[in-house]
C-alpha cells in the first residue's frame, strides 16, 4: 500500500447518518468491501491458516463453514485486528478495506473496530445495565450529546427487536436477560456504533432452537444494510441465510480455504470433492 492512501484511511472520520443506514445497497451487485489476499495466521511457530484469498461482498451475508479447529475464528479475528491482542499471533497477507491494507501497523484499530463489529459465540453482555451496555461504547467513541445517544440506543434496540421487550427495564442488569435476548443485546451493542461490517462467530450455537431462530431471522434482516460474515457449524442455517459461502478444511493440520462461491453453487454443485463430502456427511 502506498503512503498516501494510508493517511487518508486513518484520517477519515466515518460520515454516518441514520437515514443512510436504513436503505443500504442490495446484495445482487457484487462489490467487494473486503479483499482478503494470501492471508496466513499462526500462533507461535504453528501455522493454523494458510494463504486464504477471498472477497467479501457489500451488503451480502457470507457464511464460513468447516470442521472444528480449521481456523475460522482465527480468520474472523484478523478482520478486525483482534489478533493484535494475542501476543503470539502472526498474521501475514493483505486485507484491503476501502483500498487500504487494514493489517498495516498504522491503521487506527479503534476506528477500524467501530466500522467492523464482532459478535461472539457466547453472548457476552457487560455486567452493566441494559442501557449502559449500549451507552458505554457510544461514549467511548465520543458521542457526547445524551439526546443523540438515546436516539441511537433506541434505534439499535428496535433493530434487534428488543425494544418492546426491555424498554421498561433498561436500568436492570443485562445479565438478567435470557440467552437469546443477551445475544440480541450484543448485536444491538455492535449495531449502535453503526458499523459497516459485522463479524459473527457462531452466534447461535449457544442458544436454544427458538432463540436461535429469532437471531437467525435478525441476521437475515441485517443483510443489505450491513455486510455480514458469519461462521456457523449449522449447514442448514448457512444455506438459509447466506449469499456467499466458504468452506475451510484442514490439510496436514493447517487450515485452508477449499472452496468459495455463491452459497447455492457451493451447496448444490460443489466443485471440490472435499466440499461435497463435508456437505453430505454432516447433513444439515
Amino acid at each position: 500500500m502506498n503512503k498516501r492512501s494510508q493517511a487518508t484511511y486513518t484520517d477519515k472520520t466515518v460520515p454516518y447518518t441514520l437515514g443512510e443506514i436504513e436503505q443500504g445497497a442490495p446484495c445482487c451487485i457484487p462489490e467487494p468491501v473486503l479483499r482478503i489476499q494470501d492471508l496466513s495466521v499462526g500462533y507461535g511457530n504453528k501455522t493454523v491458516l494458510s494463504r486464504v484469498s477471498l472477497d467479501i461482498h457489500k451488503g451480502c451475508i457470507t457464511a464460513l463453514i468447516g470442521p472444528s479447529g480449521c481456523g475460522k475464528t482465527s480468520f474472523l479475528s484478523t478482520l478486525n485486528r483482534l489478533t493484535d491482542h494475542h501476543e503470539d499471533a502472526r498474521v501475514s497477507g493483505h486485507i484491503l478495506f476501502d483500498g487500504v491494507d487494514l493489517l498495516h501497523d498504522r491503521v487506527d484499530t479503534l476506528k477500524l473496530r467501530r466500522r467492523i463489529g464482532m459478535i461472539f459465540q457466547k453472548p457476552n453482555p457487560f455486567p452493566l445495565s441494559i442501557w449502559r451496555n449500549l451507552d458505554l461504547p457510544l461514549k467511548e467513541h465520543g458521542v457526547r450529546e445524551r439526546k443523540v445517544r438515546q436516539h441511537k440506543i433506541e434505534k439499535a434496540l428496535r433493530d434487534v427487536g428488543l425494544w418492546e421487550e426491555v424498554s421498561d427495564r433498561l436500568d436492570t442488569s443485562a445479565l438478567s436477560l435470557s440467552g437469546g435476548q443477551q445475544q440480541r443485546l450484543c448485536i444491538a451493542r455492535a449495531l449502535v456504533l453503526e458499523p459497516e461490517i459485522l463479524l459473527m462467530d457462531e452466534p447461535c450455537s449457544a442458544l436454544d432452537p427458538l432463540s436461535s431462530g429469532v437471531v437467525e431471522e435478525l441476521i437475515m434482516r441485517l443483510s443489505g444494510r450491513y455486510t455480514v460474515v458469519i461462521v456457523t457449524h449449522n449447514l442448514a442455517q448457512a444455506r438459509r441465510v447466506a449469499n456467499y459461502a466458504g468452506f475451510f478444511w484442514m490439510t496436514e493440520r493447517v487450515g485452508t480455504l477449499v472452496e468459495f462461491g455463491q452459497c447455492q453453487h457451493l451447496f448444490e454443485t460443489p466443485t471440490h470433492e472435499l466440499t461435497a463430502a463435508y456437505i453430505s456427511g454432516v447433513r444439515g
Partner: peptide, 9 residues
C-alpha cells in the same frame, strides 16, 4: 474481547 471488539481502549 467484547470491549476490545467494540473499539474500546
Amino acid at each position: 474481547r467484547g470491549a476490545l471488539s467494540l473499539g474500546m481502549t
